[in-house]
Simulated scan of single mutants.
Amino acid sequence: MPRQAQPDEIAEFITFIASDRVRFATGSELVADGGFSLGPVR
């Protein structure tokens, strides 16, 4: 994604990972950077 996240998108992500919907994800590293850490978009 060639843009930065909006605050409401990050809030949605945090709400999701704090919910019971991910109760089986333990010890996972979840990155909410829109793919930025993968490098430049070509």
Rank of each mutant, 00 (worst) to 15 (best):
A25C: 11
G34F: 08
E9L: 00
D20Y: 11
R42D: 12
Q6A: 15
T15E: 08
G39Y: 02
G35Y: 05
Q6P: 00
A11N: 05
E9F: 01
Q6V: 01
L30M: 10
F13W: 09
D33S: 05
G35H: 04
R23N: 14
T26R: 13
D20L: 08
F24Y: 15
D33M: 06
G34M: 11
S37D: 03
T15A: 13
P40E: 09
F13R: 01
D20F: 07
E9R: 02
Q4P: 09
I14C: 03
P40C: 04
D8G: 00
A25D: 11
E12N: 08
I14Q: 03
S19C: 06
L38Y: 06
P40H: 09
E9I: 01
I17R: 07
S37M: 04
E29C: 11
Q4N: 15
R42W: 07
G39M: 01
R42N: 08
Q4R: 10
F16M: 14
D33C: 05
D8H: 04
F13H: 03
G27V: 03
F36H: 12
S37C: 02
S28I: 10
G27S: 15
L38P: 01
A11S: 07
D8T: 02
R42Q: 09
A25Q: 12
F24V: 11
L30R: 06
S28E: 13
L38S: 06
E12Q: 07
V41T: 07
G35M: 06
T15V: 10
R3N: 13
L30T: 09
A25F: 13
S28P: 02
D20G: 11
S28A: 14
T26I: 12
F24N: 14
A18D: 13
S19A: 07
Q4M: 14
F24A: 07
R21S: 14
G34H: 05
Q6N: 12
D33G: 04
Q6R: 14
G35Q: 09
D33Y: 05
S19T: 10
S37K: 01
I10H: 01
Q4Y: 08
A11L: 03
L30A: 13
S19P: 05
I10N: 00
P7Y: 00
